[in-house]
């Protein structure tokens, strides 16, 4: 086997690009989990809603793409806040199972709602960029720009968490909830902010996924489970761990798909996940 096989290198690069797109919902989920201590089981469905928003504004209303993107993010932020206020907040003191179940219910609501409004047809944005060729290796222009946008999003999030008061409070609250009021921090407000950011990350992920994936009401099922697995692999609530695990999973799936079919590469990725759970049950990067 020639490790310089251009197709293998292409698969490797595609894996990294794919990881960049996985990274956004992983960061969003981890942020919300770290702060609010609740898993949004319907996270992928939020992304799906965002994809429909962009598709509708661009393909039906004829808006410019950037405007559709710009509207999608705040919409999803609002959706995240609504999810928190209507479903999560009343359950903050309930057993974790109830929280997860309630957001699981929202998953059905969003799937059902999307089916009602948009039917089960696959909708495509129909935007494509020419591939780039570097030494016989073809890189999809859309995937590359999505990757770059994802990195920019992640970097902005990092700057926010590192250098702002609210961001620092978010990192602090993930470890110690009850002491926060003594710092003058209203946890309820931080929860809202985290939910809004979690929502907008779903919105950004939606924009980046829609350029490479058709949207339909069940599209969430195609990347939702893998998102959760990446989160667990990186350590739930651990942003950096999740970010790195996203790339690892992306490469595994893409390179796995190089030797077999995409489905087998997913089987392989999931098996890898389960094995990793047993080797590093608290996440790849847990201390």
């Amino acid at each position: 086997m020639n490790i310089f096989d251009p197709f293998l290198i292409e698969a490797l690069i595609n894996g990294i690009l794919l990881g960049g797109v996985f990274a956004l919902p992983v960061l969003g989920l981890n942020l919300v989990f770290g702060v609010v201590d609740v898993v949004w089981l319907c996270y992928a469905e939020l992304v799906m809603v965002g994809m429909y928003i962009v598709w509708y504004l661009y393909n039906q209303m004829g808006w410019p793409l950037w405007m559709a993107f710009a509207v999608c993010l705040p919409c999803l932020a609002v959706l995240g806040v609504l999810l928190h206020v209507l479903v999560v907040r009343p359950l903050l003191t309930a057993p974790p199972i109830n929280q997860v179940l309630a957001t699981g219910g929202v998953l059905f609501v969003l799937q059902g709602g999307a089916t009602l409004v948009f039917s089960t047809e696959f909708r495509s944005l129909g935007v494509d960029m020419p591939p780039m060729e570097v030494w016989e290796v073809f890189i999809s222009g859309t995937k590359l720009s999505a990757f770059i946008a994802a990195l920019v999003g992640a970097a902005l999030l990092w700057l926010f968490l590192k250098y702002t008061y609210v961001g620092t409070a978010i990192r602090a609250i993930a470890r110690d909830r009850e002491v926060m009021p003594l710092m003058g921090v209203d946890p309820r407000r931080i929860y809202l902010i985290a939910s809004a950011i979690g929502g907008s990350l779903a919105g950004l992920a939606a924009c980046l996924l829609l350029v490479q994936l058709d949207v339909h009401p069940f599209v969430g099922l195609s990347f939702g489970p893998i998102t959760f697995m990446i989160c667990v692999m990186g350590g739930l609530g651990n942003m950096l761990g999740g970010f790195l695990a996203a790339f690892l999973m992306g490469v595994i799936i893409s390179v796995g798909g190089f030797w077999g079919t995409t489905e087998w590469s997913y089987v392989f990725a999931f098996l890898f996940f389960i094995i990793m759970m047993f080797v590093r049950p608290r996440g790849l990067f847990a201390r």
């Binding site: 479903v87 309930a94 998953l107 059905f108 609501v109 059902g112 709602g113 009401p217």
Partner: peptide, 15 residues
Amino acid sequence: GAAPLIYGLLLVLFV
């Protein structure tokens, strides 16, 4: 789609 919608809504309300 109406069925899963109501189904999900009920699940949330139940919880």
